[in-house]
């Protein structure tokens, strides 16, 4: 056991903790919509597609995040065009995903910088978060949170009851597009912290756990944010405590997230008997 407090005096640890908190906030906010729209695969797809775009960013601007963020907009448009809800375009997402990963590996063969830059994309590198990364993350978190606040009700309407929402005049298609955009940008940011391979642990699992506890939408959202915060911050702090083991923070994050889900499922079963 190491003294967590000692580490928290270092800027790298402070940056990481702020990054974990911001990422947990946005992913916890949008996770209930991902669950309601049954878009887990779109999350997974856009997370993995952050890999080729990040490599492209490394090649073009020597910066993975810029590439991934720009790429996420392209990915959002592609997913939205292929059908943005109810797992509509799952097959098509799979096709794009397969090609995208191949493209990523292909691009990687042209990249002669630090290989860790590229693997960081896959598994996350919370301790490598820079002040500039934090600024970008802060802006993304603020914009996404604000948007969720404004569109919450019509987005929820069009997620759970699209036919009636459309008849009631809700711009269902535009909201679907906006949501995919918020989703892919968020996912790209989350990927920074937990890696593209582990994004679902913050963008789905918290909502899945929350839905076991309650069916009240606002409570689901609140719990989802809470669980995401517990997983992200708790995971990072644990990684400090066990820093000698060399286990990455993203591993602890996924473990805590899954643990919260298991507890929720068990509690749901117990309450029902």
């Amino acid at each position: 056991m190491n003294d967590i407090w000692t580490y928290l005096h270092y800027p790298f640890a402070q940056h990481a903790l702020i990054a974990a908190t911001l990422v947990a906030l946005v992913s916890g906010l949008i996770a209930p919509f991902v669950a309601a729209r049954d878009m887990a695969f779109a999350v997974h797809g856009s997370a993995e597609l952050a890999f080729p775009t990040a490599v492209a960013g490394l090649l073009l601007f020597d910066d993975a995040l810029t590439g991934a963020l720009l790429g996420s907009v392209l990915v959002a448009i592609a997913i939205a065009l292929l059908g943005s809800r109810r797992g509509d375009g799952n097959t098509a997402i799979g096709v794009i995903l397969a090609f995208g990963l191949g493209l990523g590996v292909f691009l990687l063969s042209f990249y002669h910088g630090y290989a860790s830059q590229a693997t960081n994309i896959l598994f996350g590198s919370i301790v490598a978060v820079t002040g500039r990364d934090l600024a970008v993350l802060g802006v993304v978190a603020a914009v996404v949170s604000l948007l969720v606040l404004v569109v919450y009700r019509p987005l929820f309407f069009s997620s759970v009851d699209p036919e009636v929402a459309e008849a009631r005049g809700v711009p269902v298609r535009i909201l679907g597009l906006l949501f995919v955009l918020m989703l892919t940008v968020t996912v790209t940011e989350v990927a920074q912290v937990v890696g593209t391979l582990l994004v679902l642990s913050l963008a789905i699992t918290p909502a899945a756990a929350a839905r076991c506890w309650t069916a009240a939408p606002l409570l689901v959202t609140g719990l989802s944010v809470l669980f995401a915060l517990l997983a992200a911050d708790g995971g990072f702090l644990l990684s400090l405590a066990f820093v000698d083991s060399g286990v990455k923070a993203s591993v602890f994050i996924t473990f805590i997230s899954f643990g919260l889900y298991v507890v929720a499922r068990v509690a749901a079963v117990v309450r029902r008997v």
Partner: peptide, 25 residues
């Protein structure tokens, strides 16, 4: 029909009928 764990109660469905189309908090 709705997903079993949709994260919405019957009451929420009815509430959407009142102001589900309205933007803002």
């Amino acid at each position: 029909g709705f997903d079993t764990d949709l994260g919405a109660r019957g009451r929420d469905l009815v509430t959407l009928g009142v102001d589900g189309h309205r933007f803002g908090p």
